[in-house]
Write a protein that binds this DNA or RNA. Structure first.
Length: 283
DNA sequence: CGGTAGACCTGACCGC
DNA sequence: TGCGGTCAGGTCTACC
C-alpha cells in the first residue's frame, strides 16, 4: 500500500518510540510473508539495541548496534504499531504477551515492556536482515535514485525518458529508474506535469522531461509534508486515513470533474493497474 | 536485453 | 443474506 511518503511517515513516527531501546525477545507468529522471515532472525536480534530507523524508497531499515539491520517492506497492507505491554519495571521477562490482533506476524519485545508489532493482511510485505551497511542489502542493488536526490536530476530524467519505448506510467513505476513511486504518486505527478500516462516516454520534449522531473519531486515532498503533520498516528500511514488524500487531483476520482478544467477524470487500465488522468489537461 | 503478463494473498464492495 | 466478480497504493519471476 504505502509509497515513499507513507513509509517515511511510518519511519518518522516509529523512530522516537524505539531508538535507544534494547530488544529483549523476538517472536514470529507467521513467518510466511512475501518472502519467509528468516528463522534465525529472533536469535540475530535478541540482546541488540535499535540504534536508528532509516528508509530507502519503500524499504525500512531498523539499525541494530550501529552495524546491522532488519529490513522491512510493507507491501500493500503492512503496518507497524507499538503495544504497551504493561510490564512491571524490573520484573524478569517470562513469556511473550499473546498475539493481540489477526494478521500479526512479527513482534519485537523491547526492554521497556513495549513491543513493536508487524501486521500485514495480504502478506505482500516482508522482513529480512542485513548484516552490514544498507548498500549491501541485496534487493536495493538495482534500485534507481529517489526523488529529490542529487542523482535524480533533470538530465537524468531526460536521458531515461529518451531510452524508454514504453508509456510514462511504466517508466515512473519502474523502481530501477526512480525508487519510491507507486501508482498514486505516478498518476499525480503526471497530472502535475500535464502528461498522459499512456504517452510514450521517448516522445517527450526536453521541456516536458523537465516538467516531469519537477512534478515528481514536488508531489513527493508535498505528500511527505502532509504525512509529517500527523506523525503521532503513524499506524494509519497507508494513506487510508486521509492526509495527502485530500490533495489528490486525479487518483480515485474517475468521473469526477478535473479541478482545473471540470472535464471528468478518466480511468484506464495499463498492464493490469488503474491510471487516472484528465483527457483535457494531459497530453 | 527491455518490456509485459502472471503470481503471490486477503478483504471490501457492488450488483444480482 | 448470500454469491460471484472486481478491485486494492508492490515486487519478483518467467517468458516473449
Amino acid at each position: 500500500m504505502p509509497e515513499l511518503p507513507e513509509v517515511e511517515t511510518v519511519r518518522a513516527g516509529l523512530e522516537p518510540l524505539i531508538v535507544g531501546k534494547k530488544i529483549r525477545h523476538v517472536t514470529l507468529f507467521r513467518p510466511d510473508l512475501r518472502f519467509p522471515i528468516p528463522k534465525d532472525l529472533p536469535d540475530f536480534l535478541a540482546g541488540r539495541e535499535i540504534t536508528s530507523v532509516k528508509r530507502y524508497a519503500k524499504f525500512l531499515f531498523f539499525e541494530v548496534d550501529t552495524s546491522a539491520y532488519f529490513v522491512c517492506h510493507l507491501g500493500m497492507t503492512g503496518r507497524f504499531r507499538i503495544e504497551g505491554l504493561g510490564a512491571v519495571a524490573g520484573a524478569a521477562f517470562a513469556h511473550p504477551v499473546p498475539i493481540i490482533a489477526k494478521h500479526d506476524h512479527f513482534a519485537c519485545y523491547l526492554a521497556d515492556g513495549t513491543a513493536l508489532i508487524y501486521n500485514d493482511v495480504r502478506r505482500f510485505g516482508f522482513i529480512e536482515w542485513c548484516d552490514g551497511p544498507i548498500e549491501h542489502y541485496q534487493r536495493l542493488y538495482r534500485f534507481g535514485p529517489e526523488p529529490n536526490s542529487e542523482r535524480f536530476s533533470v538530465p537524468y530524467m531526460w536521458r531515461v525518458s529518451k531510452a524508454s519505448i514504453g508509456p510514462l506510467k511504466t517508466l515512473l513505476l519502474n523502481q530501477a529508474i526512480i525508487a519510491g513511486l507507486g501508482n498514486i504518486y505516478v498518476c499525480e505527478a503526471l497530472f502535475r506535469a500535464r502528461l498522459r500516462p499512456t504517452r510514450k516516454a521517448n516522445t517527450l520534449t526536453k521541456k516536458q522531461a523537465g516538467a516531469l522531473h519537477a512534478s515528481v519531486n514536488s508531489v513527493i515532498s508535498a505528500a511527505i509534508k502532509a504525512g509529517g503533520s500527523t506523525l503521532n498516528d503513524f499506524a494509519h500511514a497507508d494513506g487510508s486515513a486521509g492526509y495527502f488524500q485530500t490533495c489528490l487531483n486525479v487518483y480515485g476520482r474517475e468521473g469526477e470533474p478535473c479541478y482545473v478544467c471540470a472535464v471528468p477524470i478518466k480511468r484506464i487500465t495499463q498492464s493490469g493497474r488503474s491510471s487516472f488522468f484528465c483527457t483535457n489537461c494531459q497530453k
